[in-house]
Write a protein that binds this DNA or RNA. Structure first.
Length: 769
RNA sequence: GGGCGAUUAGCUCAGCUGGUUAGAGCACCUCGUUUACACCGAGGGGGUCAUAGGUUCGAAUCCUAUAUCGCCCACCA
């Protein structure tokens, strides 16, 4: 009867109870830090390869991780572990995102629940409290990142508003301003009247809402035109159609297609804008679709992007009639001032009816852009914002793609990115929020003065005083600096001088677009760790994030920030639809960790969440992976159980001598070679399949069975037993190593069982493949 | 409207630069309780690789068209 210590090992691998202590073992080993990996390699006379570095996408500091986050981190970690085990001092830099508008919304609600109004609190106090809130809340996300096994250096973790990063981000802005790449410009923006901020297109989504389509007549000014119109159309004017009648008060033209036979003879004529009683021209523009509506478009440059472009082409006046809160304002008849747009719309329709200029009202459903956070329909309004001229930046990025300095996996997305760079639009980087990096700019005099001067080229501060009726306290020039400046060379009245701080903050992508070099710079490792190696994220933020990182890194450092962008698949609900909170079909990764173990979920990601794929969640596959993980546990247990305690010394000696050869060892080498190749080529699905196939059906089903039969009748301690069991242990260890990047927990757990029997040393994470 | 991609076993998908009987996991069927594991073992069924043409000695793989689906961007008077 054999006596073996290994018989005490439990029958099933209980992932949940072991994951925490295994993670602790890794973390406390210090090998999440590249310097320690380097020391280890040097001490064990291994060749030190160049560092392997990844900066990780920072999740929202105050949220839970979703299936997509843990998917990304699974890939990060497999890459990190593989490189760490092949001679590369490896650094994974994690982060937590301040997430601009989302966090401001969340925290404002929290404050309100405590009975605090953010406006009473003031900006400075709000930001202070929100910062604390985020730092505290970040523990939650961080513990989930650790749970997935992420081998990041937590001492290099950054919150995106960290003052060290801010310095770098501001420098970039100053440089761009100097180089003329940032400028202030008047454009149509998406205004959320509820959140009182400009929104990027990505912060909005489209929703089908009931609306109206109102036809109304703008009468001609000249009697002759009226006559002609009456003959042609049966009305003394031109009929236009709109879904937003309230914007008519800001109309400055009616546009028709130059090829539209109906209106040809009216081009250049004038109509009288009803109610506002303003004469506006009929103009011709190619952008007008003859088929839509009446083929005649009322042009409201201040409140519609298309109209704005038309206005630019034709030098039309721009009249703002809706303010930031979505209320009627500006040059509108007094009775409409302060009205909600919808009320104003109704009132106008009524007045038009009375004037006999109302033609028809259709009730329609149409797609409206709404605020992603609060569902409020956005108001396109015109305002001055800060822009980046992305054209020259995109050219450099294109070059990086074309020369192969950066490549995107999957290939199709590389084409999409190329197309994006080729057709890039100016980038609005200012947001009217409190929560974020304040744009480090001061206006001499006031922001109003500066924008007025921009609006009125050729005019002076004296004109401003006269026409606006306010005193000028500076030249209206812009000063870029963090601290308030105290001199303005263009303003001689020093006593009178005042500076107004820019209140807007940067778009979060402007700061996160600098992530690879802002973080490495801030830990003092720019020279050593930049450029980084691989960027991993889901493909939905390719244009927003990686594109920006490429442009800004090339601008600041002259180098592309990473040689590979790896876009993992998107995890969908089991029925194939998108997971979303509003649909209530989300699945929490933590739930799956608990149920099947982290390794099982990781394996599923590697096999299903491939670049270019949408992976519907398949629990039964994760369950299958759990079975594989358990198989590893039991196979290892069986090998150890076959070793009698009295044989341990001989097997240790045999293992130290190394020099195993023969069929199995060769087959195993070939197997390891294949997996290494798959990992190097980012073919994780093939790697997963390979380790599963090989370990289960070769190592377990063949080798263990063969050895089992061969040693059945052997005396304990016989030469044959020692040789065969030693070989089996050797092969087990080799397999644990190559499987570790995929499934770190189970492999390390087994390794530690080997360590207990002194059949292995140290920790598996740092062993070299 | 523009761009990208997909269509292979019941389900989810592999199949790299064209080459013997097209693969995996899960599901299904049969047999098996031999002291590692039933979260197991042995075996099995199941696919004219969306459709139509073409290139080739040879096509799931390359080309063209069609159909269906998905994603992204732009727009929606």
């Amino acid at each position: 009867m054999k006596s073996t210590k290994a018989e005490l090992i439990p029958k099933a691998f209980d992932s949940k109870s072991q994951e925490e202590s295994l993670y602790k073992l890794w973390e406390e080993s210090g090998y999440f830090k590249p310097d320690n990996v380097q020391k280890y390699l040097e001490n064990s006379n291994k060749e030190v390869q160049k560092p392997f570095v990844m900066t990780l996408p920072p999740p929202n500091a105050n949220g839970d991780l979703h299936m997509g986050h843990t998917c990304g981190y699974s890939f990060h970690d497999a890459m990190g572990r593989f490189n760490r085990m092949t001679g590369h001092p490896t650094l994974l830099i994690a982060g937590k995102d301040h997430a601009g508008i989302q966090t401001e919304t969340v925290f404002t609600k929290r404050l309100r629940a405590e009975g605090i109004d953010k406006w009473d609190l003031g900006r400075e106090e709000f930001n202070k409290r929100c910062y604390e809130f985020c730092l505290n809340a970040a523990d939650n996300a961080r513990s989930q990142e650790k749970r997935i096994g992420l081998s990041a250096d937590w001492d290099s973790e950054f919150f995106t508003l960290d003052p060290r990063l801010t310095d770098v981000i501001y420098e970039t802005f100053f440089k761009m301003l100097e180089d003329g790449l940032v400028y202030r410009d008047k454009r149509i923006i998406n205004q959320c009247p509820h959140c009182r901020t400009a929104l990027a297109d990505i912060d909005t989504y489209h929703k089908e809402l009931p609306g109206v389509f109102v036809y109304m007549v703008y009468p001609f000014v000249d009697e002759a035109d009226k006559e002609l119109a009456k003959k042609k159309f049966g009305a003394e004017g031109i009929t236009v159609a709109t879904t937003r009648p309230e914007t008519m008060l800001g109309d400055t033209a009616v546009a028709v297609n130059p090829n539209d036979e109906r209106y040809k003879e009216f081009i250049g004529k004038k109509v009288l804008l009803p109610i506002a009683n303003r004469e506006i021209p009929v103009i011709a523009d190619d952008a007008i679709d003859i088929e839509t509506g009446t083929g005649a478009l009322k042009v409201t440059p201040a409140h519609s992007p298309i109209d704005f472009e038309i206005a630019q082409r034709h030098n039309l006046e721009i009249i703002n009639v809706i303010n930031e809160e979505g209320k009627m304002s500006g040059k509108v008849p007094e009775r409409f001032l302060g009205m909600e747009t919808i009320d104003c719309s109704k009132a106008l329709v009524k007045e038009l009816q009375e004037l006999g200029l109302f033609v028809n009202l259709e009730r329609i459903k149409h797609e409206v852009a709404v605020c992603e956070r609060c569902d409020t329909p956005i108001q396109p309004i015109i305002s001055f914002q800060w822009y980046v001229n992305t054209k020259p930046l995109a050219e450099k990025a294109l070059e990086a793609l074309n020369t192969g300095a950066t490549k995107v996996i999957p290939e199709g997305q590389q084409k999409a990115l190329t197309y994006f760079f080729e057709n890039i639009q100016p980038w609005c980087i200012s947001r009217q929020l409190w929560w974020g990096h304040r744009i480090p700019v001061w206006y001499s005099g006031s922001k109003e003065l500066h924008d007025w001067l921009m609006d009125n080229p050729g005019k002076t501060t004296q004109d401003f005083e006269k026409e606006v009726g306010k005193e000028a306290h500076g030249s209206g020039k812009v000063f870029a600096s963090v601290e308030k400046p105290n001199v303005d060379p263009d303003w001689d009245n020093e006593k009178n001088l005042e500076f107004e701080a820019e209140q807007d903050v940067f778009d979060t992508w402007f700061s996160s677009g600098q992530w690879p070099f802002s973080t490495t710079t801030s830990i003092g490792g720019f020279d050593k760790y930049f450029p980084t190696d691989v960027m991993v994220h889901a493909r939905d933020i390719l244009f927003w994030w990686s594109a920006r990182m490429m442009m800004l890194s090339l601008y600041r450092t002259g180098k592309t920030p990473f040689h590979t962008v790896f876009l993992h698949g998107i995890i969908n609900a089991p029925d194939g639809t998108k997971m979303s909170k509003s649909r209530g079909n989300t699945v929490s990764p933590v739930e799956l960790f608990d149920k099947y173990g982290v390794d099982s979920l990781r394996l599923w990601y590697y096999s299903d969440a491939l670049p270019g794929a949408n992976a519907p969640l398949r629990e039964e596959k994760i369950k299958g992976n759990r079975n594989f993980v358990n198989k590893i546990w039991n196979a290892s247990r069986f090998v150890l159980m076959n070793i009698d305690d009295s044989e341990l010394d001989s097997i240790r000696d045999r293992l130290e001598k190394a020099g195993f050869d023969g069929e199995r060892v060769n087959a195993n080498k070939e197997h390891v070679g294949k997996v290494v190749e798959y990992l190097s080529k980012h073919q994780y699905n093939l790697g997963t399949e390979q380790i599963r196939e090989f370990f289960w059906h070769e190592y377990c089903d063949k080798w263990i069975e063969e050895v089992k039969a061969a040693i059945k009748d052997e005396q304990v301690g016989s030469e044959k037993r020692i040789e065969l069991l030693s070989e089996l242990v050797f092969l087990l260890k080799e397999n644990l190593k190559i499987m570790h990047p995929f499934i770190p927990y189970i492999t390390e757990a087994v390794w530690q069982e080997l360590v207990k029997l002194e059949l292995a040393d140290g920790i598996l994470m740092i062993q070299q493949i």
